[in-house]
């Protein structure tokens, strides 16, 4: 018996991806929202976590087609699952530490360029170091924990519950962190590094900590993602992920954890909605009286019938959303305008 049909199945999938993007956005919000670090390489931490999970749980290469990886642990499910997620968070954190160590002293857009470039380098490493990552074929046999004892639909629901719980716990931990003096420390460094230094705070250490915490969360999100899809491929980890997460954070409101989660769900929903563009077009066309049937084709032309149309529209949708937020509500849905008005500005 199919538990989930059509719509329900689609919504469960969107919600699960929403949870994963919620985690990513919470991580980036620690960097940008609370500490003012313009991290444009967020996808690298996500990828690092996903690959870490894949490497510790993939079966031996001899059992997989097109396998060229030489490192695997084949941890048994479900007990290996928490270990795998811990490894994902750890590797995300370590990568953030290494990138942070070299770049965190840079201010504002210099950091943006450095992180963007380092994420590009990291992506090239993933493609080329096939002994570790199986190159562009990707790791396609990442086990789905608990899948054996459940039907496909039950597993979808169970995994959504797990993803939602992960998001909730991460949210609560972060709320506690940012409402403690630690959050005040991050914000002070965001507002004026010079002042924070003259008040005896080690700003570089603070920024590095912030970087590692956000990187760990993104790495963890990567682990959750890997075990959800069951496959980790380099093509999934493109800069578009970083920009989507930025859109989610700005839509929800920087420096608000609630905003980060809500923004992530909204942006994922918007992105997924693009797949209904053709349906919507055809529906409108079919309901219009004959006299007006030429209007839509005249305005938009016939919709292109090629497979890259829908994915391309995602960029457009995110772009439009971005422009609307910046223009009409720069503080986002849950952001505090007084708090973030000077975010990202250079110090005077």
């Amino acid at each position: 018996m199919a538990l989930l049909t059509g719509w329900a199945s689609f919504l469960v999938a969107v919600a699960t991806i929403g949870c994963i993007y919620g985690l990513l956005t919470l991580g980036l919000n620690v960097h940008y929202g609370y500490t003012g670090l313009l991290n444009f390489g967020h996808v690298a931490f996500f990828a690092a976590g996903a690959y870490a999970s894949a490497i510790v749980t993939m079966p031996p290469p001899s059992t997989v087609t097109n396998a060229s990886y030489e490192l695997w642990l084949n941890l048994p499910m479900p007990l290996g699952f928490p270990v795998s997620l811990a490894a994902a968070a750890l590797v995300g954190g370590v990568l953030a530490f290494l990138i942070g160590l070299t770049s965190v002293r840079l201010g504002t857009h210099y950091l943006a360029i450095a992180t963007f470039a380092l994420a590009g380098v990291f992506s090239d490493v993933l493609v080329n170091e096939a002994w570790l990552t199986n190159g562009s074929f990707g790791m396609n046999s990442v086990p789905k924990p608990g899948r054996a004892g459940l039907t496909a639909d039950e597993w979808q629901l169970a995994y959504l519950a797990f993803a939602a719980l992960s998001l909730l716990v991460t949210y609560l931990v972060l709320e506690r962190l940012v409402n403690a003096p630690f959050g005040r420390l991050l914000k002070g460094v965001r507002e004026s590094e010079a002042a924070a230094k003259t008040l005896g705070k080690d700003t570089n250490a603070v920024k590095l900590k912030s970087f590692v915490i956000g990187g760990m969360i993104a790495g963890f999100a990567g682990g959750v993602y890997a075990h959800y899809l069951g496959s980790v491929v380099t093509a999934q980890f493109v800069p578009h992920v970083t920009f989507t997460v930025y859109a989610a954070m700005l839509l929800g409101g920087a420096a608000s954890n609630t905003g980060a989660v809500v923004g992530a769900f909204l942006v994922v929903a918007f992105e997924e909605s693009t797949r209904f563009i053709t349906t919507l077009y055809n529906w409108i066309q079919s309901t219009l009286p004959d006299a007006l049937s030429g209007v839509l084709p005249a305005l938009f032309g016939p919709l292109p019938n090629n497979p890259s149309f829908i994915p391309s529209m995602r960029f457009v949708v995110i772009g439009v959303l971005f422009v609307l937020v910046i223009r009409y509500r720069p503080e986002g849905l849950f952001g505090d305008p007084a708090e973030i008005q000077a975010l990202g500005e250079e110090e005077d």
Partner: peptide, 28 residues
């Protein structure tokens, strides 16, 4: 060089020394 995006109270409390809660693990 005030912390413009923080309240006056937060600005002041920021400067206090030896805060356990300034360490991430301490805060948790």
């Amino acid at each position: 060089k005030t912390f413009r995006g923080m309240t006056v109270r937060e600005n002041m409390a920021f400067a206090a020394r030896h805060q356990t809660g300034e360490r991430a693990l301490g805060a948790l």
